[in-house]
Design a binder for these strands. Structure first.
Length: 537
DNA sequence: TTGCAGTCAATATC
DNA sequence: GATATTGACTGCAA
């Protein structure tokens, strides 16, 4: 029935959801003859015997993923090279690969890597990609780049089609595969493909050379032109708009929050990761910021904290016991620049729970900018209302609980990340800890609910997630990958398949689990008082 | 509407 | 000059 419907009344690509697009991708592949029987196992459908979870924990650089076996002939890699009619849809949101700009020039313009010609759009590849070990991939990419003295900008612009800042962020704080949307997976697939390309480095080197040449040329010409050049890039876009001489200054200056302001915001965050409009309003007023700035700050902060947690877990996991010192805090050096406080703010922990609470905005910021009690104080009451909000239901502690701090910061003191709104609500039992990494690693299966189960980080979802995907796989990847077509495996250099990181047992997790228990306990208490929230951990 | 993911791009740092 | 950080923006989903 579905097929009939689909064949007779196909929806336009743009109207399809990711899921909805899948059948079309399959059909396209089938039409291309790339899809043999069972080649694209439907998710969750156990397939072939290859139950090899590709443990990549130790994944050493996927040795050129032995594009081995014949079978893999059909490896997507090949497909990718194959000049076949691009599936128009592929464009999805993006503009067609600008085949234009001879990179030579100013800049970017080179979004599309993958050997230029892609038979299958990257999206298709992504859609079919097995679970990848994002952390491992970025790690390898970083190695390759540094080893070969290749910059992030170049790599980003030519291989990923992203800007330097994005690349930096991506490499430093990769999200777990299962937490990524199709779009978000794209860069990782590209990276994986790039890693698998034996000529990857050379190609980039070439690009580098070309860029240099172009740069020199430009330089020379401009010099001779006597025009000391204004930032070349600048003006390009703007002018075009037609506006007479608007040029630059249409740009609004970037807002830079003062340390005190950040402090105040962080305190507020600890009180309420999801402040009500009213609270935001107050905060904005107090800090003399635009409400949009405050809103943006909260959004950014929440999502960044979330990511931080993930890498911490990953690192903790991979470091195994070493974790004691707690990678968390130790976290990647740079992230650490605690200055930013992300790490520290939560850490205000140092001040012990409640500390932050007590001062709320009162801290430096308050001192500096406001005087009255923190908005929170006033808002306290409303906190309650917020909590229940759907999106936050899973959100644990922070919001409205009277014991915010404890809840607000995890053991490491880091601000507790409001677990992402539980995507799907199914029971996920106990697993709280917002720690994705665990997910990746959690062989959970056996561990006691409290600990392992806690899984996977993103707590709720992940756990569930895994469960859904394959009934039995708690852990994220393995199975998934295993089930996948070998062609894909070869393509993606499976060794990379996520999975297999053994973080289980690491002390950090236990610690967290314990901490969670206590938090849960308190929350339940609080909840029982009046909050109808279903705390999901 | 709200929250989030993914990015960009301006700055800050190294 | 390369990287890292971060405020803002876009698009999407619930």
């Amino acid at each position: 029935g579905s097929v009939s419907d689909m064949l007779s009344r196909p929806k336009p690509w743009s109207k399809l959801t990711q899921k909805g697009r899948e059948p079309f991708i399959r059909m396209q592949l089938w039409l291309n003859g790339e899809l043999g029987q069972g080649v694209l196992p439907v998710q969750g459908q156990p397939q072939g015997p290859e139950s090899t979870p590709k443990t990549s924990a130790s994944c050493s650089p996927a040795p050129e993923s032995p594009m081995s076996s014949s079978e893999s002939v059909k490896s997507l890699t090949e497909l990718v090279q194959q000049p076949c009619p691009p599936i128009e849809t592929s464009k999805d949101g993006k503009p067609p690969e600008p085949s234009d700009p001879p990179a030579s020039d100013s800049q970017p313009a080179t979004p599309l890597p993958l050997s230029g010609h892609s038979a299958l759009s990257i999206q298709e590849l992504v859609a079919m990609s097995p679970e990848l070990d994002t952390y491992g991939i970025t790690k390898r990419v970083k190695e390759v780049l540094t080893d070969n003295n290749l910059g992030q900008r170049l790599f980003g612009e030519t291989i990923l089609g992203l800007t330097q800042g994005s690349v930096s962020d991506l490499l430093a704080r990769p999200k777990p595969w299962h937490k990524l949307s199709l779009k978000g997976r794209e860069p990782f697939v590209r990276m994986q493909l790039w890693l698998n390309d034996p000529n990857n480095v050379e190609k980039l080197m070439d690009m580098k050379r070309m860029e240099k040449k172009a740069y020199m040329k430009r330089r020379h010409s401009s010099v001779s032109d006597s025009q000391p050049c204004e930032p070349p890039s600048v003006g390009i876009d703007y002018s075009q708009g037609a506006s007479p001489q608007p040029q630059h200054q249409l740009k609004k200056p970037r807002v830079v929050l003062a340390p005190e302001e950040k402090e105040a915001l962080k305190r507020a965050y600890q009180q309420k990761p999801y402040p009500s409009p009213k609270t935001i309003e107050e905060l904005a007023t107090k800090l003399n910021l635009k409400t949009s700035t405050v809103i943006n700050w909260f959004h950014n902060y929440r999502s960044r904290i979330r990511r931080e947690l993930f890498i911490e877990e990953i690192q903790a996991g991979s470091q195994g016991q070493a974790g004691a010192s707690d990678s968390p805090s130790a976290r990647s050096g740079r992230a650490a620049p605690s200055s930013e406080g992300d790490s520290c703010d939560g850490v205000e922990t140092a001040e012990g729970p409640g500390a932050a609470d007590a001062e709320e905005l009162g801290g430096p910021a308050a001192a500096a900018k406001s005087q009255g009690g923190p908005a929170e104080a006033a808002a306290a009451p409303e906190e309650r209302e917020e909590a229940p909000r759907p999106a936050e239901k899973a959100e644990p502690p922070p919001s409205g609980t009277p014991v915010p701090d404890a809840a607000a910061a995890d053991d490491e003191g880091r601000p507790r990340v409001p677990p992402p709104p539980p995507p799907e609500g199914p029971a996920d039992g106990p697993g709280p800890v917002p720690n994705p990494a665990a997910a990746a690693a959690a062989p959970a299966a056996g561990e006691d609910a409290a600990t392992s189960a806690a899984p996977p980080g993103e707590g709720p979802c992940r756990a569930r997630d895994g469960a859904d995907r394959s009934s039995a796989l708690p852990s994220t990847s393995a199975p998934a990958a295993a089930r996948r077509p070998s062609s894909l495996q070869s393509l993606f250099g499976l060794p990379e398949a996520a999975g297999a990181r053994d973080s289980r047992d690491n002390p950090l997790r236990k610690k967290k689990a314990a901490n969670l228990n206590s938090i849960i306990h308190r929350l339940e208490k609080a909840a029982s008082r009046e909050e109808p929230i279903e705390w999901e951990f």
